[in-house]
Amino acid sequence: MQNNIPDNLENELKQLIALTIGISPEELEITTNFWSDLGVDSIKAIAITVAIERRYKVTVRDEQIPQITTVGQVIEIVKDALKKKSDGK
């Protein structure tokens, strides 16, 4: 684990996002688009964001919000937020 980033972050996030929007984690590929592939809307996008923020005790910044579209992008957002947190920013 580096900078408080869990080694299995990808799996953790797949589990968390799948649970939040009520699908099976196996349905989530790294590039699955939440909006076009899974029918996520603004309500579900908030639910995903809130779930991530609560779980990792981080804040997703406004400029990162448009990137909440795939697991791959969410991994980068969480990594960035955890790094900022461990740097004390």
Binding site: S42, A45, I46, T49
Partner: peptide, 11 residues
Amino acid sequence: NHNNISLVSIR
């Protein structure tokens, strides 16, 4: 502006 991802920013 319905269902826009930017609405997440007002959560």
